[in-house]
Structures are given as structure tokens and as C-alpha cells.
């Protein structure tokens, strides 16, 4: 089994949710909020919401879509806002631009709905991230597997999804290390293709275990 030149360093991550002083009670206000809110807020309501409700594989995985459906009862817009796959974005501003474009298009076509007051307000929040190095690091795939066993759901989510923003690449910490350090591009690609929308976080992790075990057995 190949030994990496650089180890995979597992990270322990924990988040606080900071409640912003910004709320929306109409679609128009949501639109303005999308434009003005912090990147941390876009992150919280899209990337983080997927992790928060990871035990569900039904319903909308981002908070904007969920609110538009539940509080405004605009199912078409809700589906459109839920459509952007966060794995396709390298920066939060790109994601913000798409969410804004979708909302603007809808507002133009249904101007009568822009000012309707929602059943409950939307509260903009943002994530405050605290990370510390985990005690374990992996030099081989076997060690990686052992480390993965000791990773919490939140830290798995950090390496698997949040890493895209940090790396600015269409990949994740795991795949990057498999490919660059272990020379395992197929494992890297399979890992990157695990669908976080149709799997729970536990399900995604189970798939990664399966792929790693297959590689170890080969």
C-alpha cells in the first residue's frame, strides 16, 4: 500500500450560528437580503443547511427554498431555488449570483407576489466556524479508513463539502488526497460523485467506506 508524501490531516470542526439583524417578510425583502447578506449567511443557508438536515432525503435542502415554500407557498420558485447543486460552486458569490438571478426572474414574471407578507419571517444567520486539528492523521489508505471511523458527521461534512469553498476546486479534501498523495484517481472520482442530495451524511460516509474497502481489497 502506497504511503503518502503528505498525510491526510483530519480536522475537528464546530459551528456557532450567529443570528444577524436582517430578516425578510416578503419575497422582495428576501431578494434584497440575498444581495446584501454576508457570504457566511449564504454558506449557512445552503451548505450548512444540507448538513443540518442530513437525516432527511426529502424536502428542500436549502433554507431559502424551504422558506419560500413553507412561508410564502410559492412552490415553483422553491423548486428553482433548490435546484443549484452546491457542489458546482467554487465561491459563495457565484452561488449568491445564481440565487439572485432566479429570484429576480421570478419577481419580474410575478410582480404581484413580491410584496405579499409571509406567514413567518426569514431570519438571516451565518456560521462561525471553529476548527482544531484532530489527533489522528493518515499516511496510508488503511490509516485513512481508521481515521474516518473517528470522524463526526459535522467534520465529515467539513472535509467532504465545505472543503470545496476552501479549495476553490470542484473536488473535496478526500478526493484531492486520494489522487495527489495516493495516486488513486478512480477512488477520488467515485468519492467526488457521491450524491449528498440523495444520501444522508451517514449514507455518504457508508459509501466512502465501501469504496475505500474495495480499494484496500483490490
Amino acid at each position: 500500500m502506497k504511503k503518502a508524501d503528505h498525510p491526510f490531516r483530519f480536522v475537528t470542526v464546530s459551528y456557532l450560528t450567529r443570528i444577524e439583524n436582517q430578516t425578510a417578510t416578503t419575497l422582495g425583502e428576501l431578494r434584497d437580503g440575498l444581495e446584501k447578506c454576508s457570504g457566511g449567511s449564504i454558506f449557512y443557508h445552503t451548505f450548512q443547511s444540507l448538513g443540518r438536515h442530513h437525516f432527511l432525503t426529502e424536502g428542500f435542502s436549502n433554507d431559502f427554498a424551504q422558506w419560500v415554500l413553507a412561508a410564502l407557498n410559492y412552490p415553483v420558485l422553491a423548486e428553482q431555488l433548490a435546484a443549484p447543486d452546491i457542489r458546482g460552486y467554487l465561491t459563495l458569490n457565484d452561488l449568491r449570483s445564481d440565487l439572485l438571478r432566479i429570484t429576480d426572474d421570478y419577481c419580474r414574471s410575478r410582480s404581484e407576489e413580491v410584496g405579499r407578507v409571509a406567514f413567518e419571517p426569514f431570519y438571516f444567520c451565518e456560521s462561525v466556524e471553529v476548527t482544531i486539528p484532530h489527533t489522528s492523521e493518515a499516511w496510508t489508505l488503511e490509516e485513512f479508513r481508521r481515521g474516518l471511523e473517528h470522524l463526526s458527521n459535522q467534520s465529515f461534512h467539513y472535509h467532504f463539502l465545505v472543503s470545496r469553498l476552501r479549495l476553490g476546486l470542484r473536488t473535496n479534501d478526500f478526493s484531492l488526497w486520494f489522487e495527489n498523495e495516493l495516486g488513486l484517481p478512480t477512488l477520488a472520482q467515485r468519492t467526488n460523485y457521491i450524491d449528498v442530495y440523495t444520501n444522508t451524511v451517514e449514507g455518504a460516509r457508508a459509501k466512502l467506506f465501501t469504496f475505500v474497502d474495495r480499494e484496500l481489497a483490490a
Binding site: T12, S14, V130, I132, H134, T135, E149, H150, L151, S152, N153, Q154, S155
Partner: peptide, 15 residues
């Protein structure tokens, strides 16, 4: 909850 969740508490508290 599983050992990972508890291990992470210990890691955070270590600081």
C-alpha cells in the same frame, strides 16, 4: 452517539 462525537468534545475541550 458513537465515539467520534464524544472524541470531538474532548478535542475541543482540550483547548
Amino acid at each position: 452517539l458513537g465515539a467520534p462525537e464524544i472524541d470531538e468534545l474532548r478535542a475541543l475541550a482540550g483547548q
